[in-house]
Amino acid sequence: MHLTNEQLLELNKESREHLIQCDNCSIRAKNLSAMRGKLQNLAEQKPMSDNWQHIKASYQHQNYDQQMNLVNKKTTFWRNMTVAMAASLVLFMAGQNYFLNSHHQQNFEQTAELTRLIESNNIIQSLLVAQFEGNSVDAMKVVNLQIELDIIDKTLQQAYLKNISDKEKTVLWQQRQALIQSSFTADKQPKIMKI
């Protein structure tokens, strides 16, 4: 029984042993080997042009797109945060009107202090957004800040709904401001002055 073509094409131990004793298969194996020799000597095909610059440009473009997508995601987050902040302010203003109408300038100075705190919160948050958009920022840092701000904002909203004292609200706004300020990189800490 002779070796099949498939056996000849990928010889195993038994097929090799068979070749030693079978002249017919041995000739077939030699012919195959000669043809393979010609195939091995085929010249290396060369590309018609040097495509490295094209590949490099595509790779860099792809990387740029990926980075832009990351930045866009962060920007969307901060836009959402600003919207949330605005919602908090609307709630605050509604609460403040109610407060002013019902208490007729009672403890007006405390309220003015609170307004200044909210304004400075707004300013430093804008500065932080600008810093985050302009630099590569640790994604975990952004997420952690988002969570912590979310907790304080919800507490603030509850504070206005429950109409707690301005003193307590001031503490919450101060905490919020301190949290945002701590998120700036060391050399870019903004100086918030009282207006």
């Binding site: 002779h2 073509n5 000849l8 077939r28 012919n31 043809m35 010609k38 195939l39």
Partner: peptide, 16 residues
């Protein structure tokens, strides 16, 4: 079984 009975690539000029 005749497939490898001869080296039929021998006369081929342009293998590619």
């Amino acid at each position: 079984l005749e497939l490898f009975q001869q080296d039929w690539l021998d006369a081929v000029i342009d293998l590619d």
